[in-house]
């Protein structure tokens, strides 16, 4: 019971103070370069998507966005950073999958799920709009049409 009280106190405290930001971690890209998560949205708005090679809705989402990616880049400086949460079993598949699919995204690897754990272990796909490390919009799961919502939100938030 005592534990429960502490737990509830902790919980209410947390909600009162809760903030949303990407963790200050360093991840590797497909070439093995270390990229700091803080740097990817420094002074700009980007879309960060958590995905995995085994996750069908994730692939659907990234394939869908890839179709119009060049246009979006030109139109509204749209940029997507795809963080793969593939673990040791499938992390090797990421590079062949990304290249084979011809995706132009910056792809980062989070094989031990540090980013995912920091965000509270969300289900993938998790799509976020991030500016200066702050998470401004967050959506999990993908159904067709969700990409239009994302583009609209991006336009709205990047325009500010």
């Amino acid at each position: 019971m005592k534990k429960l009280i502490i737990f509830i106190a902790f919980l209410s405290f947390a909600f009162a103070q809760s903030q949303t930001s990407l963790p200050d971690l360093t991840l590797k890209d497909l070439k093995g370069n270390e990229i700091s998560l803080a740097s990817i949205s420094e002074g700009k708005t980007v879309v960060v998507s958590l995905w995995a090679t085994w996750c069908v809705p994730c692939i659907r989402e990234l394939d869908t966005i890839a179709e119009d990616y060049e246009e979006l880049q030109e139109e509204m400086d749209f940029e997507l950073i795809a963080i793969s949460v593939d673990d040791a079993r499938s992390t090797r598949r990421v590079k062949p999958a990304v290249m084979g699919k011809g995706w132009e995204y910056t792809v980062l690897l989070d094989p031990n799920n540090d980013v995912r754990r920091h965000l509270g272990n969300p289900a993938v796909p998790l799509t976020m709009i991030v500016k200066d490390g702050e998470i401004l919009f967050r959506h999990s799961s993908f159904t067709p049409g969700a990409e239009d919502q994302l583009f609209e939100k991006f336009k709205e938030l990047a325009g500010e």
Binding site: R92, R93, K95, P96, A97, V98, M99, G100
Partner: peptide, 10 residues
């Protein structure tokens, strides 16, 4: 593995 644009093998 091998990875080039349009073809990836692992």
């Amino acid at each position: 593995g091998f990875a080039s644009k349009g073809l990836g093998i692992n």
